[in-house]
Write a protein that binds this DNA or RNA. Structure first.
Lengths: 361, 361
DNA sequence: TCCCCTGCCTAAACCGGTTCACTAAACCGG
DNA sequence: CCGGTTTAGTGAACCGGTTTAGGCAGGGGA
């Protein structure tokens, strides 16, 4: 290529990267020769020399197939894309390789990583921390030394629980997130634990308690904890499990809208009416939460904003190098009451008689 | 690093890539030194030397933000992921850079590209064809020399139209895809054109005709063509446009479910009942098409399978090099009748009196 | 006329690995 | 003990660019 235009390869490099360093005639000659030969600078070689890949990775703990079954993910990617598109940075999905997140991360062609859905005790986390690549954690606690973007899980969950409590629900199922169907959920760390704590607080239960008389003394509360994968099928499975239990709870709180939607679909198949027979509260407020009938009552979190912040912090970390000061950002959550929650059948009369407002049946 | 373990860099390379070429003791010594120093082989350098990035790109004609507003995309990515995860290949999203698809493609760090949503006359297509990278086109006609995975757009659209026709609809809006809001839709090439032709056929209209008495002589058919971006907002906008027109059509066919869902949401806000006041037919059959009430009547296409085939063909093309024989695969579509279509108000009595079957009101 | 500066371009080092061709030592059967 | 084959490891070329330091010619000022 260089020979063809009769110049050095330095000049070729200049022609593409710093056209002003070259006389216009020379530059045009090089570009003409390039066009004629169909030459294009090798993206890989350029990246090696520049020591920048202009790519960031989104690390997820499950297969692409499973992770994208949750509409949360595309929303997050949209937010990440808002920042990355503008900066000319490409986004790579980094699912585990042969089950190992660490292996995937070591091979990833990126300047930095956004970590999604990793529990703080994930075995591969140490490997990443010491890898030297820039990291931003999403929804992860105790991630010393790196940026963390999270949401106020406990507050949101607590609002959702308080809402159900006010409606008069006392027998409530909580559907946690099962990353692997057989692996038990860690109820002390991670996102499920934070939300569960919020739910207990919202019901006035002691930390760790699943049964109890709440503080106002208005009846025994019972929490049933189960966990399923985050997907429509997971939601259906949760409903099936509850049906096997014999008596259905009067309400369900899930950790994601897609699970709630699966529950609704399953309920429709079974002739269970929402919200008359069963109230449902989701989490996330994905767009599809407004597409169901009734529309889904859910705990809103700013998904796209989360993606934007994560991408922004990561790019900043990459650019500023070692003098980057990591921060922890906690974005707000809020309960969005729509159509899938109502008073349970038995309590209905009581609630009505009080004339609405904050209800303490 | 090499010095630290007292070996050549060749041996270091062997230790990581071909452990059997080394005596166990030597390998362990190298690995130990690597662990101690926190050394990891540079992914970029390795890719340069190997002349393989182990990445493929998904080229989309719009920003990440816009493209992921359509749940079609995550479904497609799931299919691509099914193949790529297993092969240890990462998937990169390749949106236009500064509005140029060609620029994005030239800079992309990939072994091959899956092209989505590009009209056959897209200005950047020539650039890609001549780039030398492996290509698979989705839903693109006349893409000589490369693999193409498509679906039978015309047949599906025709089925949808015939369904509406049989129900008695004569005034029907067709919502095409607007990549850029102001840019007119090419009615002769591309996906919208193929489907529009199918719709005309399904209504017994002559090619290119928007008004006509259909072949059976059972009343004048009128097609209103409009186009909006593919998103929930686009669907709402389409409904708004139709409302401005004065008289609403009795049915709408859209080119994507998400648009149909937006239409439904808009209709709900306006108090327009689906399907009593307005029938709606979608396209794609995304999961969310089953989440609405009523569930969406739509033209199913095998989205994930499309992604799988595309990824499979692309990887094959990458591996087999110049002796790769491109093929064109056309996957089937089919109408899935659910709850958003019914006879229009006026025709209802007539249809009933005939006792169902193929209706020719 | 000499010197320095500026504009344009280049040689060579470098990015950090992989791979090929080759050597030295160990092993092997006869 | 010898020639031939393995085994273990190495040096150097290579992947295809970027970047730094510097060379050379022409112009302007002293």
């Amino acid at each position: 290529m260089a020979a063809r235009a009769g110049v050095s390869k330095t000049s070729v490099s200049f022609a593409f990267n710093q056209p002003d360093h070259l006389k216009a005639a020379t530059r045009d000659r090089i570009l003409a020769a390039a066009a004629e030969l169909g030459y294009r600078p090798s993206p890989i070689a350029r990246r090696l020399a520049r020591r920048r890949t202009d790519q960031i990775g989104l690390v997820v703990p499950q297969s692409t197939h499973d992770i994208f079954a949750n509409p949360f993910l595309p929303e997050l990617v949209r937010g990440i894309g808002d920042v990355c598109d503008a900066e000319g940075i490409a986004v790579v999905i980094v699912p585990p390789v042969a089950g190992s997140v660490a292996r995937a991360v070591d091979a990833a062609l990126v300047d930095g990583l956004i970590l999604l859905g990793l529990a703080p005790n994930h075995p591969d986390l140490d490997d990443m921390r010491s890898s030297g690549t820039c990291l931003v954690g999403l929804d992860i606690e105790d991630f010393e030394g790196f940026d963390v973007i999270g949401v106020d899980d406990a507050a949101g969950a607590s609002q959702g629980a308080a809402h159900l409590r006010a409606l008069g629900h006392r027998d409530v199922a909580v559907v946690l997130i099962a990353v692997h169907p057989d692996q038990p959920v860690d109820e002390h760390h991670g996102i499920s634990a934070r939300r569960l704590a919020g739910i207990r607080a919202g019901f006035g239960l002691a930390p760790g308690a699943d049964i109890g008389t709440d503080a106002d003394g208005d009846g025994a509360v019972r929490l049933r904890i189960l966990s399923t994968p985050v997907s429509e099928e997971g939601g259906r499975a949760a409903l099936a499990t509850l049906l096997e239990d014999g008596e259905l709870p009067t309400a369900v709180i899930t950790m994601s809208d897609v699970t709630a939607i699966g529950l609704m679909a399953g309920a429709a198949d079974e002739g269970i009416r929402i919200p008359e027979d069963l109230s449902i509260v989701g989490f996330d407020d994905i767009p599809a939460a407004s597409w169901t009938t009734p529309r889904l009552t859910t705990i809103h979190q700013p998904i796209r904003e989360k993606g934007r912040r994560a991408a922004h912090r990561l790019i900043q970390a990459i650019r500023s190098g070692s003098d980057h000061r990591p921060v922890v950002e906690v974005l707000p959550t809020r309960l969005v009451v729509r159509g899938t929650t109502a008073s349970p059948r038995g309590a209905e009369a009581l609630v009505r008689s009080r004339g609405g407002g904050v209800v303490t049946v």
